[in-house]
Amino acid sequence: MVVRIRLARFGKRHAPFYNIVVAHARYVLADTPAQLFLCSLVTIIVNRTARNSKPIEVLGTYDPIPKQPPDGEGKPFKDIRLDSVRAKYWLGVGAQPSDPVWRLLSMIGLVEPRYRPGQQAKTAKSHAPSSDLREA
């Protein structure tokens, strides 16, 4: 059973605001061989937790709307509040960050950076045929 570190969207329309939460992940229900066979025919995904249901723990928040700096100097900033000690603990016991959370955690050095702005073009090129397939 996988525990994920993911975002949970709160906030209003056009004003997203995310809690960074630890929650049980979606998983494919296949404990017995019979179920495994059934899964090959019809994928049964069990949503362990609804998006905004009460999580195991709230590690922090992520406000994706850039705020102007109060002193008026520098770039607008995105405010992230995070308990890095708890985040480290959850990573240590095998919690898997979702892609957006991976990106945030890599910024403060908790995980190896994967989604670098410079790399994106390269990966997109290498996977060009598959993306075409998906579009088709």
């Binding site: 850039p66 770039k75 607008p76 900033f77 992230i80 995070l82 910024m107 702005p117």
Partner: peptide, 22 residues
């Protein structure tokens, strides 16, 4: 975290991480 530190060149914003306690 400035955009330059993430390998980007001159992004539009920076990220500010504030330490909290659960």
């Amino acid at each position: 975290v400035l955009p330059a530190e993430r390998g980007g060149n001159g992004g539009r914003w920076e990220w500010r991480f504030r330490e909290i306690s659960v």
